[in-house]
């Protein structure tokens, strides 16, 4: 995988030396550099973090905050700020968009299953038109799961690269547990739970599923 070899990592040796214990080490490749004593790459370390956090920490946050998509839509239409304050999750700072955990069901109206960024279009309000996109992956857009987790704080991470790897790792955990639909997808029933980032007005919801099932 061609990667550019820029950047310098600063490793603070936690030996009680404080700043005097800092050592600047050239970092030839942010993906392969041994960024910890264990010699793991950023990807590996963040994958381990996400895998360890998934059951005990991620799922409880979603379970505690989720609400039916239909209810959320009504509240967003009435007052997005109030809906965000009541049900939303986001990192500190007013400039960050809200993330929501939702549940619901609908009928698949379309999709793109031959793409690396596979997705389903789902009609959840019975008008026959897709109003929700469910991201199946393996390429999943966005940072909704990471940014919805109150225990994840950017200051605790080395830099935006490591932090981005964490978002990817959470998306990968979601993808691992996401079943693909079989046969003709159009018209199939789907039940979902997941997280999405609220984009600008009128933009379709792009859900990252944390639970998904078909039929029935």
């Amino acid at each position: 995988m061609p990667r550019s070899a820029f950047g310098v990592s600063v490793f603070c040796l936690a030996l009680g030396l404080g700043l005097a214990g800092c050592k600047i080490v050239p970092d030839p490749d942010p993906n392969e550099a041994g960024a910890t004593a264990a010699g793991q790459s950023d990807d590996e370390r963040m994958q381990a973090y996400a895998a360890d956090a998934w059951e005990p920490r991620v799922l409880p946050v979603i379970a505690g905050k989720r609400l039916p998509l239909r209810d959320l839509r009504q509240q967003l239409a009435a007052d997005p700020s109030a809906a965000g304050a009541a049900h939303g999750l986001r990192p500190q700072g007013d400039s960050n968009p809200w993330n929501f955990a939702v549940t619901g069901e609908g009928v698949i109206t379309g999709g793109k299953t031959d793409s690396r960024a596979a997705k389903l279009e789902v009609d959840t309000d019975g008008d026959g038109k897709g109003d929700l996109t469910i991201q199946l992956g393996p390429v999943i857009r966005g940072t909704a799961i990471r940014d919805a987790m109150p225990f994840v704080v950017f200051t605790d991470f080395r830099d935006q690269i490591e932090f981005a790897k964490l978002a990817n790792a959470f998306n990968a955990e979601a993808h691992k547990r996401t079943p693909f639909p079989e046969g003709d997808i159009i018209g199939q029933q789907v039940q979902f739970e997941g997280v999405f980032t609220l984009q600008g007005k009128g933009e379709k919801i792009e859900l990252v599923p944390t639970a998904l099932s078909y039929g029935g």
Partner: peptide, 24 residues
Amino acid sequence: LLGKESDTNAGVRSSGYHDIIDQY
């Protein structure tokens, strides 16, 4: 096309690009 090597953002952006593109 990459930016100036000494600028952190050149590397950050390139990594971000490849994070997506290399999956195809």
